[in-house]
């Protein structure tokens, strides 16, 4: 491979990586927000993403909605699902040992996956082409309209989330609860409501990611959330768990690394690459790229 084609290949994988990474970032945001607020690794989050994809499928095929209304429909539906899951499965366990809540999250994850298999069969579904897929060629770099779509939608959603977290009352309350839940309660913040809101926001972002992936790959299935869920979680850890810009950064880095590994080595090692990143970051900087180290006081 000469230098010119290497650079071109590199740039191509960078483009692919960024669009994949935006998906990871959207899912990672929910992970990081939920972890930040109740210190739970919500293993069911990847399945909310799957749920979102199916909701998008229902909206476009059965309800005949166009892309943007379908996206909103999926986000709202998943947001409600997130609230219900928190209310039914996690809230009764607020004071339980953390490992027990983790097991419950795993249970919820199984429930969503196999519940969906029960309803929609395990067969993959073809996501309808809601967009005229056009391919642009910039000096040999191939960018298709879906990639642009993913990037634009992700940026809009992330900007929206950043606004909510930084400039609204709810966002302020969310930050307060994640910093110190007891103090926040004493300040008159309704913690349960804020936790519900967090689940709703996180879930709807994951649902958006699900719909975007459906549009991009044209195929969805009930177990599609397992691996991306895990990788988004790694992305959240990479950026610094509990930190919102960290999740965005971590997601994009993960996407780029994966695209590079499958582009330059072999796609079978793509998954291993993300886990290797995870181990390295945990060993050398467990608090993540943007995180701060906290030492236990003796």
């Amino acid at each position: 491979m000469d230098m010119g084609s290497f650079a071109q290949q590199f740039a191509q994988q960078l483009i692919n990586g960024i669009s994949l990474g935006s998906i990871y970032a959207l899912i990672a945001l929910g992970y990081t927000m939920i972890y930040g607020i109740i210190k739970l690794i919500n293993f069911a989050h990847g399945d909310i993403y799957m749920l979102g994809a199916y909701m998008g499928f229902v909206a476009t095929t059965m309800l005949g909605l166009s892309f943007v209304p379908a996206l909103i429909f999926a986000m709202v539906a998943a947001g409600i699902a997130g609230i219900i899951i928190e209310r039914v499965a996690y809230r009764p366990m607020r004071n339980a040992p953390r490992i027990a809540i983790l097991i419950t999250a795993i249970g919820v994850s199984f429930f969503l996956e196999y519940g969906m298999i029960l309803i929609a069969t395990p067969q993959p579904r073809t996501f309808p082409a809601v967009f005229e897929a056009s391919v642009y060629n910039f000096y040999g770099l191939i960018v298709n309209s879906q990639q642009i779509l993913i990037l634009v939608i992700s940026l809009v959603l992330m900007a929206g989330l950043t606004y909510i977290v930084n400039h609204t009352k709810v966002g302020k309350a969310m930050r307060a609860v994640s910093f110190d839940a007891d103090a926040a309660r004493l300040m008159g913040i309704d913690i349960d409501k804020i936790i519900s809101m967090t689940f709703a926001l996180g879930s709807s972002l994951a649902a958006a990611a699900g719909v975007l992936v459906g549009v991009y790959y044209n195929s969805i299935d009930p177990l599609m959330g397992m691996m991306p869920g895990l990788k988004a979680f790694i992305a959240a850890v990479l950026g610094g768990i509990g930190i919102i810009p960290g999740a965005m950064l971590g997601g994009v880095i993960m996407g780029i690394v994966e695209a590079m590994v499958s582009g330059f080595f072999s796609s079978t090692f793509r998954d291993a690459a993300s886990f290797v990143i995870l181990i390295l970051i945990l060993l050398y900087r467990p608090s993540g790229i943007l995180g701060k180290n906290v030492k236990e006081k003796v």
Partner: peptide, 22 residues
Amino acid sequence: PEWRMVIYSLTLIILMINRPQG
């Protein structure tokens, strides 16, 4: 087979909620 994992996961959730300490 089609109900197996659904029932399994529900059992798990219900058991954990009621007996978080195992």
